[in-house]
């Protein structure tokens, strides 16, 4: 393939990425709104599962394969199950809000506006002279495999160069997991011990 054809292919790929991004973002927005809109919490949990799957696809398009892994495992898998457990402990239907929450809406819109404004100051996506690409990244790419013996760069950074950082994260996640298990365990035990039979959640 000569250089011109390769250039054309790259441009075509960028166009495809753009359209895929737009389509997936529209899907994400639609699922997000639907998740808030639906009164049936079980249905909301389902829709949030779809949301996670779509976000994961978006990460794949952005070439963040590792984030996509995490999003799929945690977002679509664990979170859905946790949501269902929470619904099992409370109730299936959302109560209709009496007041119109204008103040929180204003705060969230303002925050969203600020965040969008902040993105204007960021370097362009994937630009070579962004600060993130200039300091340690080339070093990791060049010496990572030789120094750590791990073929995947991201893994070598996470598990070797930032090993202590990751150890801390893992500790936090482990503690959180134990906490959730203890909470759920005690809740279900209390329910079993109570004399009234656990009534079904069919609301």
């Amino acid at each position: 393939m000569d250089a011109e054809a390769r250039q054309g292919a790259r441009q075509g790929r960028r166009a495809i990425d753009l359209y895929l991004n737009i389509i997936l973002l529209v899907f994400v927005a639609a699922t997000g709104i639907a998740a808030v809109w639906l009164r049936n919490l079980l249905a909301s949990a389902m829709v949030l599962g779809i949301y996670s799957l779509l976000m994961a696809s978006l990460w794949v398009v952005l070439d963040a394969v590792d984030v996509a892994f995490t999003e799929a495992a945690v977002g679509a898998g664990v979170t859905t199950v946790l949501m269902l457990l929470a619904i099992a402990l409370t109730g299936r239907r959302e109560k209709r809000a009496r007041s119109r929450p204008w103040a929180p809406l204003a705060v969230s819109l303002a925050t969203a506006g600020l965040l969008v404004y902040a993105t204007l100051g960021m370097p362009a996506f994937g630009s070579a002279d962004a600060p993130a690409q200039l300091h340690v990244a080339p070093y990791y790419l060049r010496h990572g495999e030789a120094e750590t013996g791990v073929p995947n760069v991201v893994t070598s950074v996470l598990a070797s160069y930032r090993g202590f950082d990751t150890l801390g994260e893992v500790t936090v996640i482990f503690t959180a997991g134990i906490g959730v298990l203890v909470l759920l365990g005690s809740a279900s035990r209390r329910r079993r011990n109570s004399a009234t039979p656990a009534k079904g959640d069919s609301a």
Binding site: L53, A76, G77, V81, L84, L85, G185
Partner: peptide, 21 residues
Amino acid sequence: INFVATIAVLRYVKRGRSTAD
């Protein structure tokens, strides 16, 4: 993961309570 999530959801819905129970 898709499969695991589906089965977990179904188990919850079928029993009307959580799998943790």
